[in-house]
Every structure is written in C-alpha cells, then in structure tokens.
C-alpha cells in the first residue's frame, strides 16, 4: 500500500511535468521535450531518495502507513544507504512489477528486497503507542485481589505479555463471543491465572471465572 501511494505521488508529479511541457512546447518544442525527459527521470530516481533523506527513512507512502527504513544493524541510517537501496529499484523491478524484489522479500527472513540487502537496510513498522480503554473494559467493581499487594506483584511478574494481551482481548470482545465459547475462554484463562498465583480463598470464593479474569487484567494493566 505504501508503494502504491508513492506511485500515485509520482504519477501526480509526472502529470504536473506534462502540464509544464504543454506550456513551454509552443516556445521551444525541443527544449520542452528534453526538460520533460529529464524531469521524468529525476522524479523516478530522486523521489524516494529525497523523501527518505529528508523524512528520516520515510517516503510519503511509508509515513502514511507507519513504515520506516532503518539500518539493519540498528545504527543510524546513512545517506549513502538510502541512495543505494533506491538506485537498486532498477534491479528489484526486474523483469516487471517488482517481481524479483518481491520474490526476494518473500524468501528473506527480514523481508529485505535486493536494494535493502545491498544497502544493509530493513523496512520496519513503527509501533503505535496506544493505551487500551480500561475503564470501559473493566468497569468499576470492587477488586478483592488488590488487597493482597505482594501476590498482585507476583502475578504481574509471572504473566507473560502474550497471555495478558489475550486476556484483555477476551474482555474487549466478550459480547461478540458465543455464550458457550465465552464460558470456555474465561474458564481457561482463570484456571491459568489461578495456577500462577494462589490468592487466599476469602478473596476469590465469590468470583466467577470472567470476574476473576477481569480482576487479574485490572492488576496487570492498571493497579499498583
């Protein structure tokens, strides 16, 4: 999608070049045509290079789709790397429609096209730092587990990020789950959390599986 966006930008630039040619063709057709040939070439070659140099590894398409070119070793991206990766689009584009570059991407574990390999760069997705709307998901019920701060701390330590994300996701999507499936999902999650940390019976006896998971998610994501 980022590449398509960039192609659209280049097409728009080419359209403008065509209009400039049309204006000057009456004055000197030869020079107007020559300027058109040169500008087409410069736009094709320099668009991505200049964008990535000026926008820190991003073209307009990459900026919209939150992608960025970075050095493969995690070092600062050098201008020479940007130039090489973009000049090699000529080879990546072989024999047509970026076929060679596309196949190389698919075969490469870091999704590098030939230009990226030659320049030692890689295109990464910029993570979005967003916080879930916990108030909406958790509600405002009393959380009996919070009484036991040392056990809460242990729970935070033992739950993996992946499981925490699954539990939050399950709560977010609970209304869309089939009732039987919902009971099964929350039973499984609650059993898993109970295995990790054993809260006193007084704190858990009146809690159903879903509320147990809700309390655990509150501990993991919000409470201290």
């Amino acid at each position: 999608m980022a590449m398509l966006t960039d192609l659209l930008v280049i097409s728009a630039a080419n359209r403008i070049i065509g209009l400039i040619r049309d204006v000057f063709v009456a004055l000197d057709p030869d020079t107007a045509q020559a300027v058109e040939v040169l500008l087409y070439f410069l736009v094709m070659v320099l668009y991505a290079i200049l964008c990535e140099l000026l926008l820190n590894g991003q073209t307009l398409g990459k900026r919209i789709f939150k992608l960025r070119v970075v050095d493969a070793s995690g070092l600062r991206l050098e201008p020479s790397q940007v130039i090489i990766r973009n000049l090699l689009r000529l080879v990546d584009g072989l024999p047509m429609f970026y076929l060679l570059g596309g196949i190389t991407c698919l075969l490469n574990t870091r999704m590098q096209r030939l230009g990226d390999i030659a320049a030692s760069t890689v295109v990464v997705r910029i993570p979005e730092v967003s916080h879930p709307d916990l108030d909406n998901v958790l509600g405002s019920k009393y959380n009996s587990l919070l009484e036991h701060r040392h056990l809460c701390a242990r729970l935070r330590q033992r739950v993996t990020p992946e499981v925490a994300a699954i539990a939050l996701e399950a709560l977010t999507r609970r209304d869309r789950l089939d009732p039987v499936a919902r009971l099964k999902v929350f039973a499984g999650l609650a059993a898993h959390f109970r295995e990790l940390v054993d809260f006193p019976a007084a704190a858990t006896e009146s809690l159903g599986d879903e509320q147990y998971v809700r309390n655990v998610v509150e501990i993991l994501y919000r409470a201290g």
Partner: peptide, 12 residues
C-alpha cells in the same frame, strides 16, 4: 521487560 502488564510501555 519481565512484566506482562504494560506491553505497549515495553514497546515504547
């Protein structure tokens, strides 16, 4: 990094 509670924070 060993905490599950803030994956976004870790990513940030």
């Amino acid at each position: 990094s060993t905490f599950a509670s803030e994956p976004e924070l870790k990513q940030y």
